[in-house]
Design a protein around this nucleic acid. Sequence first.
DNA 1: AAACTGTTTTTTCACGATAAAAGACATTAT
DNA 2: ATAATGTCTTTTATCGTGAAAAAACAGTTT
Lengths: 300, 300
Amino acid sequence: MSKSNNVYKDAYNRCLRLLDETRSLPSEPELGTLLGVSRTTVRTILARMEETGLIAWNKRAKTVLREPRPDDFFPEEETDTLAEIIERSFMRRLLAGGAEAGMQINELELAREIGVGTTSVREFLIRFSRFGLIEKRRNSHWVLKGFTRAFALELTEIREMFELRSAAAFAALPQDSAVWADLDRLEDEHRLLASEIATRFNEFSELDERFHRLIHRASHNRFIVDFYDVIAMIFHYHYQWNKAQERERNEVAIGEHLAYIEGLKSRDLGKVDAACRKHLKSARQTLLTSIPESRPPQKS
Amino acid sequence: MSKSNNVYKDAYNRCLRLLDETRSLPSEPELGTLLGVSRTTVRTILARMEETGLIAWNKRAKTVLREPRPDDFFPEEETDTLAEIIERSFMRRLLAGGAEAGMQINELELAREIGVGTTSVREFLIRFSRFGLIEKRRNSHWVLKGFTRAFALELTEIREMFELRSAAAFAALPQDSAVWADLDRLEDEHRLLASEIATRFNEFSELDERFHRLIHRASHNRFIVDFYDVIAMIFHYHYQWNKAQERERNEVAIGEHLAYIEGLKSRDLGKVDAACRKHLKSARQTLLTSIPESRPPQKS
DNA sequence: AAACTGTTTTTTCACGATAAAAGACATTAT
DNA sequence: ATAATGTCTTTTATCGTGAAAAAACAGTTT
């Protein structure tokens, strides 16, 4: 089967949404940058849109003929990257219990189970290894280290170190830096979300990530910025998995963020430090309580 | 060609060295753990040793018949992992100038040039990406970020953060911890090397790594321990590349290490901090001076 | 001439296949 | 009964291959 055309399908779907807004589409290169794909893919999209009667396409003229219908879209699941598919499957197994620390991971078995080639699984595991949850035995299998309490503590230790430093760097940024406007915008979003928390509490996770990434970027250190990928990944699955008191937790977190933002805006390093520490402490607590207590080793 | 048998060849060579010391070899499983390979590989080794008349092999009896000659060994270059070969080639290109930041990296070209499959190159690049020197453009090529001054500063910033914390953790370890004996042993090695510095100065690099890894391990944090891989990798190639005043530099570093060790042994956090800071500062300086000044962008 | 479209080439992504190496199972020796 | 050896099976490491996607080149249009 070689390679799926999910890039095309995903871009096609996104292009359909563009159709709603205009009478005619822009030039091929412009569409390319807009959708983040190459001209080759753009042309494949246009060809299909012409075929299905969505547009009339003649050289520069790309006139919209009709509005896209729901059945014009490719199904969601066909637009995913292989890497995403593998990650989801892998994390499901990992979190759905039965994933004891020390267990070995079998590339071939994983590949068969997910229905993909071994190369993709191998590459996924290599990429995934930087999250510190698995480890490779030379010339042999991978070992699962497990989503344990120790892991959470090690992760948050680094996170706190990095974020305190980033926050301090942030507060020291000159007044004319563009980040202050970004921060204002994020503050507004926080206030809005707080006011509609009853219905939109599940949108916090995404806002949370954007907020912390903004702060980490102020460190101007690629290792700090990159490390947020680890945190984001863990929290992403953590949010999916642990829905207990989600609304309350998020409400509290929004309040902490607002205090944190206020601290940053005051540019008073003491205040920044205190607000940051407070938020990180409760974030760590949330993560820790969600970790299943490790059973003592059992004799069978 | 599928897969080279470098594991076998390397283990075979190491096994030859064992032959010097004994009249007969131990059991297959024992040899396996000794050499770090499976029994399958052990048996391949034994079969060949029998063939070349090095041993007589009959079930449990594996009697050494003669001393190994130089031509019994497989050539060094055949014992390297593909990953090592690729890394060396890649780093040579990267350091041998002409590697401007922003340049794109071509998997296929690299693979052809080194004479390996693209899969191996891909896997190497994925693994290598955590060092922060390259970055992937989605669905497209890799981009070289370059071994720049900014990189060195970001790297050392994290290093200093991590090592100060690890050193403090180290000093706080209970007296009966095994690390103190390890530290004593390392101290002895440092003193010995210092006394023979004129001839053995190039052995420092390896000692340096062992010393710092010991300290980092005291953090009990996988992210800190793993980060030392980045540092080790950079310093490894840095040492190979920049031989200017190697002897003097290493002599100074040994002195700093000894002061650092003394600080740790005193368990006085102030002393530890001071000695650690001093050493890290000069390590950073050494690294920085070795980085070629980035030319201003040239119009051709 | 600048920006677009049409066409061709190159590169990336993913697979199945195969040898090396690991691991499991059965058998034999202490 | 334990621990070795002998044999067979499974898994990992690596390649070549082909389709998807990107990129380069050439020819048109404004």
